[in-house]
Each structure stands twice: as structure tokens, then as C-alpha cells.
Design a protein around this nucleic acid. Structure first.
Lengths: 220, 220
DNA sequence: CGATTTATGTATTGATCGATACAGAAAGGA
DNA sequence: TCCTTTCTGTATCGATCAATACATAAATCG
């Protein structure tokens, strides 16, 4: 559109990357504009001219995260040959991605603003939408697996997606709390080890957690 | 000690309860002292005299949460007759607790301040310690199950505890994002359905997520 | 009673928050 | 060249942040 006017003296991408790292590390609330302008190497008016507001900058930073550091986690859900392999890849890549040295641990989308009340509504909604989007992608993949005959038709694709998403979200907390890569890998290994049994049981008991098989009789 | 002086004109427990609800709903950063004094029905000097600071009030509120609304989730880990039943109870109670009407959804310990950088260090450390404490309680319970012969000695108790804790933490995100109780129950049902297979596989593959059994051959 | 101790209500503190006003600088268009 | 457009740096805006000074009220102790 307009190439008129004084040209921008900083790289928008680089500034966005720096902002993303800061938000990722500290969260939305704990990152101040003073922190941002310092890390991005520009003054407030330049920041507002380029990004609009702190909230809009954050949302752009989340998108940037999804295109860069957060990429590669969910990218193979559709291309993996089976649903089980898709989950295995997801959890393996998650374990690797969440424990890369020199970067904040865990997922920016999960950790940077989990509260839904009191904060900026646009920020919360943007993060929530991205979380649900991934969960829906899982459900979609599982439904495809049903259509392809990999999974039986009775399987509860929605519940299974919620299970995998929940586990993957929880790994962000684990990672932020200091879990080693091996620990995150062990978490993924558990899910994969139980996968076939989950599939076999799914659809028969979706709404209630069935009682444990009483190999040891309960209490009395 | 001292019954001298003008008596407190408010219920410390009630004020703490109100503060807890606010912190639980909005998180630490998004709750201001103005919010707190209004909800607690007292003036700033009374708050500071009774609780010390915002951070100390928060930590007391977290303890209060653990004694009240958060209680009942983890209380049966040790008393459940088997490890599997302990996990089933944990996840069932979690699903119920996280979706009670009239209360914030999800766990205060997970949601109210997950960031480890930039915020108040005491607050972050207190929450992290409470999370790890629960995970260690799980590991402890699993080790006991090994000693009692319920679980085989090769089982990776630490990895299994991380798996269950991760899933339970992720359920907080799901709940806050609006998941129904049935959905959370389905998540728990998945874990229970896969439990025996996880136990059977545990210890044989702890540090890596094994490749999916190629019932459908991968790619080429 | 008077002295001491503790809590309360009003008013306000300095710091920091996110966001701008303003003037000068650097580009293109005529 | 002069005008318009856009960005940059300085300085600062009003609002809100967590936290207190201060005087007064209400209790116990001697």
C-alpha cells in the first residue's frame, strides 16, 4: 500500500520474536511494557505504531510462537500414518520441544495466561481458541482413523482427544516445574502403552470412570 | 498469647475464604488489593495487619484451598486399597471437583500462577512445591503397591506418577476452558482403561516413547 | 480510673502500569 | 524544493498498583 514516510528502523519480525520470548517466559501479566520496549529495542510510540497495544502484540506473539518455536509439535497429526502414531509423535515432539535448552519450558499457549477472569478478554479468548483448535484437530484425526478402519466405530473420539490434549497440556506444567526430558518421555510412553486398551474400552464407558478390576478386593 | 487490644471486627476465616475464591478465579496477578479489600470487607490496614502482604495472603489462601475446596481430591491416595483404585478415585474426584457449579473451575494450585519467572518468587515456589508434593505422594503410593505385590518391581513409579500428575494438571486447563464433567470423566476413563497395559509395559521402556505397533505400516 | 495494646477508617504514599503528546527526523511524491 | 507521510526519541499522561501514616476506637491490665 504505502511506501511513503520514514522507514521503520527495526526488524518487525525480530522485535516480535523478542516479545514472544518474554511473554512465553513470564506470561502476559508479568511482562510490562518497560520490559518489552527494552527487550525489543524500541520506544513505546514505535511499539504502539507497529503493534497497536500490549494485548494485540501478545496475540501476534502467540501466532509467531505457533509458526516458530511451537511449530513441529502438532504438525504431524494429520500426516502420521495412524492415529496411534500421530499421538506418539505428538507426545515425543512435545517432550523434546518442552525441554530445549535456552528456551522457556512448556507451551506458551498453555502457560502464558490460563486465567479466564479478570484479565484481558481478547488475550484469554485467543489462547483458549488455540487450545481447543488443537484438541479438535485430534478429534478430527481420530474420526478419520475410524473412517479408515484403524479404530472401531464405537470409539469416543471426543473423549480420547480430551484425554490426549489434557495430558499434553499437563506436560507444560511438568516442564515448567523442572521435569527432565526423560520424565516427559516416560509420560508419553505411558499413554502409548495404554493406547490399545483405551481404544478397546472406549465407547463402552465414556461418562463414568469404571471401578478398578478388583484383583485386590476393595477395603473390607 | 495476647488477648489484649481492640478485638478484630471480622472473621479471619471468612475473609481468607473470600480472598481464596478471588485468587482462584482470577489468579494472583489479576487480583488487586482493591479487589481483595472489597471482597473481604475490610480496609487495607486491616488486611496487612492480619495477613502481612498480598503474597503472604495468597499463600495462606492456597493452604485454605487445600483444606477446603481442594480437599477430597488427593485425600484417598494412601487409603485406597490399590494403586489403580487410588488413581481412579483421584481422577473421578478431580472430574467432580473441577466442575462444581458456583465455584471456579480447575485447580487453584495449577491455574493461579503457573509462570516461574517475573512474578513473586515466594508465590511461585509455594505453588510448585504443592504440585510436586502431590506427584511425590503418587510415586510413594506406587512404590508401596510394588512392595505389596500389586505392581511388578520393574515398574517406573516415578514416570507413572509424572503421567498421572500431568493428566490431572491438564484437566485443570480443560475444566477452565469449559469442558463438561462427562468429558473430564472420559479423560479419567481413558487412563484407567490403559492402566494395566501401562503397568505391563512400564520399566521396559521408560526413557523413550516406543514406536507404535505397526498394525498399519508407517508411511512407505 | 489511667496506661497499654491492638484494630479500624480515612487519606495518601511513591512506584509502576499501559498508553500518548509533541516535535523533530527521514523517506516519497509533485 | 516544498509538502505530505510515517517513524523516532523525549517526556509525560492519568490510572492503578501494593503498601502505610496517622489519628481514633475498643479492648485488657494494673
Amino acid at each position: 500500500m504505502s511506501s511513503r514516510g520514514r522507514p521503520r528502523s527495526f526488524s518487525r519480525e525480530q522485535a516480535l520474536k523478542n516479545a514472544m520470548h518474554l511473554f512465553w517466559d513470564r506470561g502476559y501479566d508479568n511482562t510490562s511494557l518497560a520490559d518489552l520496549t527494552r527487550a525489543m529495542g524500541l520506544n513505546p510510540p514505535s511499539l504502539y505504531a507497529a503493534f497497536g497495544s500490549k494485548a494485540q502484540l501478545f496475540i501476534e506473539a502467540v501466532d509467531f510462537y505457533g509458526r516458530t518455536d511451537g511449530a513441529g509439535i502438532w504438525d504431524y497429526i494429520e500426516t502420521a500414518p495412524t492415529a496411534k502414531e500421530a499421538v506418539r509423535q505428538l507426545l515425543t515432539r512435545t517432550a523434546e520441544n518442552f525441554t530445549r535448552s535456552g528456551e522457556p519450558r512448556g507451551c506458551m499457549v498453555v502457560l502464558s495466561a490460563p486465567q479466564m477472569a479478570g484479565g484481558d478478554a481478547d488475550v484469554c479468548d485467543a489462547l483458549k481458541a488455540r487450545r481447543l483448535e488443537k484438541q479438535l484437530a485430534l478429534e478430527h484425526r481420530f474420526k478419520r482413523a475410524v473412517a479408515e478402519g484403524e479404530l472401531p466405530p464405537e470409539v469416543d473420539c471426543s473423549g480420547l482427544a480430551a484425554y490426549v490434549a489434557s495430558l499434553q497440556h499437563g506436560m507444560s506444567i511438568e516442564a515448567r516445574d523442572g521435569a527432565a526430558r526423560d520424565t516427559l518421555m516416560a509420560i508419553g510412553a505411558c499413554a502409548i502403552a495404554g493406547w490399545d486398551a483405551m481404544i478397546a474400552a472406549s465407547g463402552r464407558a465414556t461418562a463414568t470412570v469404571p471401578a478398578a478390576s478388583a484383583s485386590i478386593s476393595p477395603s473390607a
